[in-house]
Structure formats: C-alpha cells, structure tokens
Amino acid sequence: MPAPRSSSAAPASSASSANQVAGTASFSKFMHVLQLVADAQEPVNVAALMRASGYPRPTVHRIVAALIAERLLVEHPHSATLGLGPRLIQLASRSWGRSELRLAAVDELKRLRDLTGETVHLAVPNDTTMVYIEKLESPSAVRMASRIGTSVSLHATAVGKAYMAALDDGALEALVKRLPMPRYTPNTTVDAAALRAEVRKTRERGWSVDNEENEAGIFCFGAVIRGVGGVPVAAISVSTLVFRQKEDPAQAYVAPLLEACRVISERIAQTPSLSGSDVL
C-alpha cells in the first residue's frame, strides 16, 4: 500500500477525499459480490463470482474471505459453494420487522387480501427495480413464486408501472433512458416508446396492469402509495391467476386496491417519522 502523502504534497482535505473515494469503491465491490450470491439461481463458487463480477481471482478471494469472516456469507464444506450467512439473514429480518412503512400498511394489506382473495405485494423503489417488502398469500391452494426481498423489474410489473406513472415527467424520462428492459414472456414490453405509452395509460386511469408480462399465467393490478406532497414511496399489487380472474375486475380488485392505497397514504401523511420520501 503506498505511503500517505505529506501535507506539503496535497491538502489534508484532498487526501481525505481520496481515501473516502477509495473506501467507497472497495465497499461497492463487497456489495456487488454479496448481491451476486444473493441473486444467483443456483449455489455459486469463487470461479463463478469471478466470471460474473469481472474481478480478478485474488480480489474475489479477499472479498469472499472477509464476508465469511463477518458471517455475511457461508461456504458449504463439501461443495465449496457460497450462500448467504446467518448475520445477513438476521439483519434482513430485523430490517423487515422494523420497517415503518410495512407496519403502517400491514392492516390494509390484510384487508385487501381478504377482500380480493388474491396474493398482495407491497414494494418499494430501489434504483431501476422494485423490491417486495411484504407478501400476503392468497388463501387459494395455488402459490406464487415471489418472496419478500425479491427485486422485480419496473417495466414488466404492476408495482413498477404504478410507481413510474406517479413520477413527474422529468424523473420518468431520466429513469426510462437508463432502464434495462429484458423480456420475460411474449407479453413483456421491451420498447421504451411502448413503455411510455403504457405509463400514460396508467396515469389516466389511476392504476396499472401486468398482463402476463413478468410471469406467464399471472395478471396483476397495481397502484401507488404516496407520501407528503404526493411523492411516490411504494406500490401495492393484487395478483391473480389468469384462468380464475373475476368477471368484474374493476370492482373485485381495483376498487379495494385504490382504497387501500388511499388509506395507507393518509396514514403516512399523519405519521411524522414517515413524512419524507424515505419511509423505510
């Protein structure tokens, strides 16, 4: 490691800034590797992380060793593959249990699930995705594959399109320009112009749809939760199987969904700790 520069070589503030940038870069690498393990569909090893991250082997080894030491990752002894560690799961559990937004919304989410008889999700924006922070399963025997903590695309989900429709034009355009739009099903919108048109429709009617765009056989209705000043802070979806969708979806799903969002938005506005745009 190079020796620190003397004060005569660079001002103290400049050296401090350089150290902060270097520390941030290292932290970002650690988080990137951790995210790769979390998002992997199958257990991964160091070689797989090297390919996915583009980092050299010594860097990946160093990061993995540090994450294991902090119990953020665990290494399975027989396969040498990696999984999320108990400390990370503990932190995530505490974050979820203490989420003020989730606690403010959970009663209405239960009421919405009971009224519709369908699966209900609560999601918050995270850069170019939405993250589920609550899921209440339908009482039906059929279960959806989603889970709390799952990141889902903005362009292919009802929660994502509801959130985008609540943004002002400038923020929406900036987001669309950098939005990845992979195709998940034949119905997925992968064209920016088509997505803008869908967002306009969502604004006009006040709620969004996911017509088998994220998962085949699943139809979702979405609406936004707003904070103070109308800032979008979260979204709710009601998800049903296409074959059992009720004849009058506007009454069966959309009306109770909009009412739930209205009540939760009012509750947020009346709660000082939830009065900003960051309500987690």
Rank of each mutant, 00 (worst) to 15 (best):
M1Y: 01
A3H: 05
A3Q: 14
A3Y: 05
P4V: 02
S6C: 11
S16P: 00
Q20K: 15
Q20P: 02
G23M: 03
G23W: 04
F30C: 03
L36I: 10
A38T: 05
D39Q: 14
V44G: 01
S53C: 06
Y55H: 07
V60N: 05
R62W: 01
E75F: 03
E75Y: 01
S79E: 13
G85N: 10
I89T: 14
S93R: 15
S95L: 12
S95Y: 03
A104R: 00
E108R: 12
R111H: 12
D114Q: 15
T116H: 01
G117L: 10
V124T: 04
I133S: 03
E134D: 15
R143V: 07
R143W: 03
T157G: 01
Y163L: 06
L167P: 08
G170M: 08
L179P: 02
T188A: 07
D191H: 13
R196V: 07
V199K: 11
R205W: 07
G206T: 13
G206W: 13
D210W: 00
A216H: 12
I218M: 06
A223T: 05
R226A: 12
V228A: 10
V228E: 11
I236V: 15
V242G: 01
R244T: 13
D248W: 04
P249F: 04
Q251S: 14
A252D: 08
A255C: 09
C261K: 00
V263Q: 09
I264N: 00
A269H: 10
Q270P: 01
